[in-house]
Computed example of a mutant assay.
Amino acid sequence: MGAILLHEHDLPADVAFSGSVAVDTETMGLKLHRDRLCLVQLSAGDGTCHLVRVAPEGPAPNLCALMADPSVVKIFHFARFDVAMLLARFGVLTAPIYCTKIASKLSRTNTDAHGLRALCKELLGVEISKQMQTSDWGAPTLSPEQQQYAASDVLYLHRLRDHMDALLAREGRTDLARACFDFLPQRARLDVAGWADEDVFAH
């Protein structure tokens, strides 16, 4: 694992990403309006991970500018949750997006193993641990184990995207995936506005 750089409250102004950035979040739970956003992880796919500890209140202008930057694709695994959390906390609508989980579900219909750990093991030959997933991300200090776990959630997303692109093209579903990715910001808006469990397209 490469360098892990920890930042407080916002991404430093001198940290820039070009083309694409892998993104993940850690929270106190899975309820948008109950559980707070604690950490945002970012990587350019170069082995370095930036960890931004999010304050309970207040802005993060540099982080939000990156999330809204139309020239930088944000690569997530299960983007729906992370994008909604960022929207609920900061009011920023993240775009454009690539979601490796959606890509896997559209291209790997021979399996139901679409989790990040399964994809890393099968496609990259990399074992990642989920042991720290439910640890206390709101703690005053993040342990080295927490930092390593958080970093592992973004360090491999660029490589996974390359595999997913090849599979989507092979199955003729690239355009369908792109349409799903494009809709994700609106899906997040629906979740934050209260329609997380209701299918507004149903009869």
Rank of each mutant, 00 (worst) to 15 (best):
L66I: 06
L66D: 03
M67I: 06
M67D: 07
M67E: 09
A68D: 00
A68T: 05
A68P: 02
D69M: 00
P70C: 01
P70R: 00
P70E: 02
P70N: 00
P70D: 03
S71A: 01
S71I: 07
S71P: 06
V72N: 01
V72E: 02
V72I: 10
V73H: 11
K74G: 15
K74H: 13
I75D: 03
F76V: 09
F76K: 03
F76Q: 07
H77C: 05
F78E: 03
A79D: 10
R80T: 07
R80S: 09
R80V: 04
F81Q: 14
F81R: 12
F81T: 11
F81L: 11
D82W: 09
D82I: 05
V83L: 03
A84E: 05
A84I: 04
M85L: 08
M85F: 10
A88Q: 01
R89E: 15
F90C: 08
V92W: 05
V92R: 10
L93I: 11
L93F: 05
T94C: 15
T94I: 10
A95N: 12
I97E: 06
I97K: 03
Y98Q: 14
Y98F: 15
T100D: 04
T100F: 02
K101F: 14
K101A: 12
K101C: 13
I102Y: 01
I102W: 05
A103S: 15
A103E: 09
A103I: 09
S104N: 01
S104V: 01
K105G: 14
K105E: 13
K105H: 08
K105L: 11
L106Q: 13
S107F: 04
R108Q: 09
R108W: 07
R108H: 10
N110A: 08
T111G: 15
D112P: 01
D112Q: 11
D112S: 07
D112Y: 04
D112V: 06
A113L: 14
A113V: 05
A113T: 13
H114D: 13
H114P: 13
